[in-house]
Design a protein around this nucleic acid. Structure first.
Length: 499
RNA sequence: GCCGCAUUCGUCUAGAGGCCCAGGACACCGCCCUCUCAAGGCGGAGAUCACCGGUUCGAAUCCGGUAUGCGGUACCA
């Protein structure tokens, strides 16, 4: 693949909420496209909605993107700090002069004009049109104001917004990278559009074009929800005298009911997935395959492998329902692929959460975790599930339900018998022979001589020492528990059975 | 309402005129492995390719219409 240095793509999140899984996916697709093309990936913060933007959200977004491993070549690195790159700054609120200059140019060329209509007036007009079953559209009341009329409005104290002139009759067409040719009649655009608010702050449709032009963006890859807005952008590019970039509209991520993914119906904040123990490899892999496929049957792919294979032509056009089960499966695949040290490092924070929540009494050591790794790694769909898997190893005492202590085929008396015989057999081991393959044969032998099913005996022991019916393999569990605690818990269980 | 986009197993998808009475994966159900739970292996069930017409010797794939869904239609992004 030849180097195309002029490929410049961007992700332009708005810090009006925590990093959304959909934004993360759009960022990923842009990243993959840029890397694949040998191009430049840019991050730009669209923070012109001052009322809803916050630094905390900005930090959440930057941290989340970093966490995913989507490194950008230009843009802010750290929340609140200055941005790096030849087109800095990369925060729109710091680029206000360039929007003002662009607006002045449009005004001077009469491609835009000042509009004195108040929000109330516009609202009333919109409602009138709706009631008449007509499409809402700006009526152009201020499109041809005389100087006198303008002065009269100013005298009333009205502050003007700036509107961009949208042609009455013109078909805007473009070749979408994913959907092919799209044609939309300018008359369907709702009339002249506001590009600068009365308070002087520029609006999204305007800033996005001014910046994409200024930053020499070559390909705009974004969600399908922007497809209908694209003609407005194209008109603005033309008015600004800048060549249009290529556009590619990604299918939307959907709730289970096939509506656009929303916080109400689906967990959308990346930070929550991180908290629950999804690993970056799993999330990246899953998100990449939501709406795109390699065209082959490969599906467990790393970020680098995805990059090698990425291709906009294989992006599916229809919306994709977010399927958490599939995410968990892929996440499990990646957890199992982690090296032991990496696995242990990533797991420790989750034990800290367990400790803080009072669900365990102490933290495991790295050594303990390393020896436990082989038996827990394949049992975790998410790192956050580790507490319920082996939390019993790190508590001072376990709660044991006496009813669960008695295996299905056994009664209380056999259980007492079995447990105390097991206790005796285990007590014969010292610290040195307290190993899984040393512990198992004697207990199997015991079951056999007494005519018990080994599984029943093991289950009774399992419940006695862990309080649970589902655990990692019993003998590995006993080793992790240690001789003293194993014996003590067996004694406690025997006591609970009233013997 | 208007404009636009989309539509293959429950879900994610493969498929770019004959290889497809449609392949893979998740989930589901069996079986195997097995001390439980997982993981893994094997097998099963699951899609009249939204519908109706057309083009063609031949259509999931091309064209038209219909339906349904979704998105957009803000001095939000």
């Amino acid at each position: 693949m030849p180097d195309s240095p002029e490929t410049r793509v961007r992700i332009a999140p708005s810090p009006t909420g925590p990093l959304h899984i959909g934004t993360a996916r759009t960022a990923l697709f842009n990243y993959l496209f840029a890397r694949r093309q040998g191009g430049t990936f840019i991050l730009r913060l669209e923070d012109t909605d001052v009322a809803r933007s916050s630094l905390a959200y900005e930090k959440d977004i930057l941290d989340g993107l970093h966490w995913l491993g989507l490194t950008w070549d230009e843009g802010p690195e750290v929340a609140g700090q200055a941005a790096r790159g030849p087109y800095a700054p990369y925060r729109q609120m710091q680029r206000l002069p360039s929007y003002a200059a662009a607006a002045d140019r449009l005004l001077a060329a009469d491609l835009a004009y000042r509009c004195y209509c108040t929000p109330d007036e516009l609202d009333a007009e919109r409602r009138r049109l709706e009631a008449a079953k007509l499409p809402p559209r700006y009526n152009g009341r201020c499109a041809r104001l005389t100087d006198d009329e303008r002065r009269a409005f100013e005298a009333e104290g009205r502050r003007p917004a700036i509107r961009f002139r949208v042609p009455e009759q013109e078909v805007i067409a473009f070749d979408d990278l994913i959907r092919g040719r799209v044609e939309i009649d300018a008359s369907a655009l709702g009339g002249d559009l506001v590009i600068v608010r009365a308070d002087g702050n520029p609006l999204y449709h305007f800033t996005v074009v001014v910046d994409d032009a200024a930053m020499a963006i070559s390909h705009v890859i974004r969600g399908e929800d922007h497809l209908s807005n694209t003609p407005k952008h194209i008109l603005l590019f033309r008015a600004l005298g800048h060549p249009e970039p290529r556009f590619g509209h990604l299918p939307l991520i959907l709730n289970a009911d096939r509506t656009k993914m929303s916080k109400r119906k689906t967990q959308t904040a990346l930070a929550e997935y991180i908290e629950q123990g999804f690993v970056r490899e799993g999330l990246v892999n899953y998100l990449a395959l939501l709406g795109w496929s390699t065209g082959t049957e490969e599906e467990v792919l790393s970020l680098d492998e995805l990059t090698e294979r990425f291709d906009l032509a294989h992006v599916h056009k229809g919306g994709a329902v977010f399927d958490r089960e599939r995410l968990e499966w892929l996440n499990g695949q990646w957890i199992r692929r982690l090296g032991v040290d990496e696995f242990v490092d990533r797991l420790q924070p989750f034990f800290e959460v367990e400790l803080a929540g009072g669900r365990i009494d102490r933290l495991p050591t790295d050594d303990e975790l390393r020896s436990l790794a082989p038996v827990i790694q394949e049992r975790l769909p998410r790192l956050g599930a580790v507490g319920e898997l082996v939390g019993f190893l790190f508590v001072d005492r376990v709660e044991v339900d006496p009813a669960q202590l008695v295996p299905k085929r056994w009664d209380r008396a056999i259980t007492v018998d079995g447990l105390s015989a097991a206790r005796d057999a285990l007590a014969r081991h010292d610290e040195v022979t307290w190993e899984a393959d040393e512990l198992e044969p004697p207990l199997r032998g015991l079951a056999e001589t007494r005519g018990w099913k080994a599984g029943d005996l093991f289950m009774a022991i399992r419940v006695a020492v862990t309080g649970r019916t589902a655990t990692p393999p019993l003998f590995d569990t006993l080793v992790a528990l240690g001789r003293e605690r194993t014996l003590a818990r067996l004694d406690a269980a025997l006591a609970a059975l009233g013997s």
